[in-house]
Design a protein around this nucleic acid. Structure first.
Lengths: 164, 164
DNA sequence: TTTTACATACAGTTTAAACTGTACAAACAA
DNA sequence: TTGTTTGTACAGTTTAAACTGTATGTAAAA
């Protein structure tokens, strides 16, 4: 890959900032963006060269992104090196990962707090803490509701997109 | 403040984990939770004691939370020390802060990318990069749409809450 | 089989963030 | 005014994360 033009570099920097909102590290965001901008799948060595990071570093970065299901490994006959690529459905992928994160977390926390609530009411020590835990539970219920709705919204956006 | 019971400590740990989803640091999340659980406004010294962190550390933590509009400073006559407290409208506060963050960011990035797009089309070098930037713009438009809808949802949740 | 090319595990290093203690400044009390 | 009490700026330290280079293992090529 040829050295980046300063304009391409701007694109990388700007887009990476957005990806960081999804709780990706700056490095991982940058790596993803570079991979996304590339017209074809890249090898670890190529990514190492383009990012200016060591191969090991790129390897763990790609592993992170793969675990979140944000990049894909592809095979090309004749090529021995591992090849990675992104897909064009940026929005769907990122939102799916993000919503999953929120929803699985809120679900777990609701359980944890319920269980704590029980223990507290068994040995009635403080009214105060009990009230607070109730508020926390409501907070989580609201969160869950909001993000379930967001999921629906994303589905709609995706559908609209497919039609046009 | 008396030493925390292990049960209270569980509550703090669990709830803090949720707050971290809002991009608060573990320390700030913990600080907020402690403040929220306390039945009355707390001073820096109290928070320092309860969190086990230095006063300076608590000070910067509170400053962070204040900047995000998640805690309030209150005055009590006769008390010289600064007093801080949280409010009961957890959901509204956090979502407001969070949505603002997303929406202001996406709005800015849309502008940045548009501006870059212009520069690219002026000096037509690569078709590829142009296409990619267009995709990024669509990505941001989708994000904006989704989070604006989320804002509406939160408003509704909040309204429902106020009635009951 | 041996040799080569690659991914990855691991130990050590660098870098950045969080935290602490001291020092200073502002507000209040006497 | 002077003496106290409090918040905060700052320099230095600790801690955790990111990164690197070497070493190892594995799969393909010869």
């Amino acid at each position: 890959m040829q050295p980046e033009s300063y304009l391409t570099d701007d694109v990388i920097n700007e887009f990476s900032k957005t990806l960081e909102l999804f709780d990706l590290s700056p490095s991982d965001s940058r790596l993803f963006t570079i991979l996304f901008l590339n017209h074809q799948p890249m090898t670890l060595d190529e990514m190492s060269q383009t990012t200016g990071k060591s191969k090991t570093s790129v390897n763990t970065g790609i592993r992170n992104l793969s675990d979140l299901n944000l990049v894909n490994q592809v095979w090309k006959k004749g090529v021995r090196k591992d090849l990675y690529t992104t897909t064009d459905d940026l929005f769907q992928r990122f939102m799916h990962y993000y919503l999953d994160k929120w929803l699985s977390h809120t679900s777990m926390q609701k359980q944890s707090l319920s269980s704590i609530e029980k223990k507290i009411s068994d040995r009635p020590q403080g009214e105060l803490i009990e009230t607070k835990v109730k508020q926390m539970l409501i907070f989580h219920k609201h969160l869950e509701k909001a993000f379930i709705q967001l999921k629906t919204t994303c589905q709609e956006i995706n559908d609209d997109d497919r039609i046009s």
